[in-house]
């Protein structure tokens, strides 16, 4: 199936979960990412159970501080 991840089209196996997509997309620190699927934020505890659908729009949203790097 096809997904649009952060604006780019991605081909994946059917029924991929949010957790699996995070691995597939090489997200090294999933704790630093919120995931929005088709306009809704997916609760972190549902990442394993949430299967994505063909044509789904996924956004990975990253925590960003102030860039000073000391906090």
């Amino acid at each position: 199936m096809k997904l649009v991840v952060n604006g780019s089209e991605v081909e994946t196996k059917d029924g991929l979960t949010v957790s699996e997509l995070l691995v597939e997309q090489n997200v090294k620190m999933p704790e630093m990412v919120s995931v929005e699927v088709d306009g809704q934020i997916v609760p972190r505890e549902d990442f394993d159970a949430t299967a994505l659908k063909d044509g789904g729009k996924v956004e990975f949203l990253y925590f960003m501080g102030g860039g000073g790097g000391l906090n």
Binding site: M29, E31, M32, S34, E36, I41, P43, R44, L61, F63, G65, G67, G68, G69, L70, N71
Partner: peptide, 17 residues
């Protein structure tokens, strides 16, 4: 968007920031 702050061990360390 983000319910709570990230866990301390996930925040990029100084050398990675």
């Amino acid at each position: 968007i983000f319910e709570t702050p990230p866990p301390a061990n996930a925040v990029p360390s100084c050398s990675q920031a």
